[in-house]
């Protein structure tokens, strides 16, 4: 099984048929084809983030819809000097999903399960999904040192905030940050992102 990173890197560099600045201009002008393009290119990445935080498919899809609406409505707030479009969208989706887990409907779900139990449940499901959907990424993660893989999985895949992770697993916040830093250096090499 080979990891198809090359194909993906091409699409990062060229963004398919339109450049990121053209896409942003299209979104700011409220052109629906721009949103269409945005959905086709980014819905999977954003839904991946959301659905690993929210297990219920209907709720996760609802959050995805909210995320796109927020992106559409607040695109004028996006400032390219502060970061890439994807980062901005990722944080919108991630924050909406995290907020949802704190809302009543999900809290109820959480109450019925013991937190630890829920996490292990997610772990089991996550492992099986990872092996099906993103087998290439799983290989990359497995090559990381265990402590780095742990922070990446909890922060990026399970939707933990850095302070939640520090608190729950009793790791100093600074350590969480430096471990993520080291993991990102390794991932950059593994995913062949050269910038």
């Amino acid at each position: 099984m080979t990891f198809h990173r090359k194909t993906y890197l091409t699409s990062i560099a060229y963004q398919g048929t339109i450049s990121e600045s053209d896409l942003i201009a299209g979104l700011k002008a409220k052109r629906q084809p721009a949103l269409d393009y945005l959905y086709d290119h980014y819905s999977s990445a954003l839904y991946g983030v959301i659905s690993r935080i929210i297990r219920n498919q209907d709720v996760a899809e609802e959050v995805l819809q909210d995320a796109f609406l927020r992106i559409w409505n607040r695109i004028d707030n996006y400032d390219a000097s502060k970061g890439r479009l994807f980062t901005w969208m990722l944080n919108i989706a991630r924050n909406l999903a995290i907020d949802k887990t704190r809302s009543k409907e999900i809290s109820k779900d959480r109450k019925t399960d013991d937190i630890e139990e829920l996490v292990s449940k997610i772990d089991r499901k996550e492992q099986s999904e990872l092996s099906i959907d993103t087998i290439g990424l799983k290989e990359v993660l497995e090559r990381l040192p265990a402590e780095q893989r742990f922070v990446v999985e909890y922060l990026y895949l399970k939707g933990y905030t850095q302070s939640e992770l520090a608190e729950e697993f009793n790791i100093p916040l600074g350590t969480v940050k430096t471990r993520l830093r080291m993991a990102m250096m390794d991932l950059r090499n593994e995913l062949k992102v050269n910038s």
Partner: peptide, 13 residues
């Protein structure tokens, strides 16, 4: 790196 990572970890809605 994050973009590549999350794209790879994507899931079709």
């Amino acid at each position: 790196t994050m973009e590549v990572f999350f794209m790879e970890a994507g899931k079709k809605p």
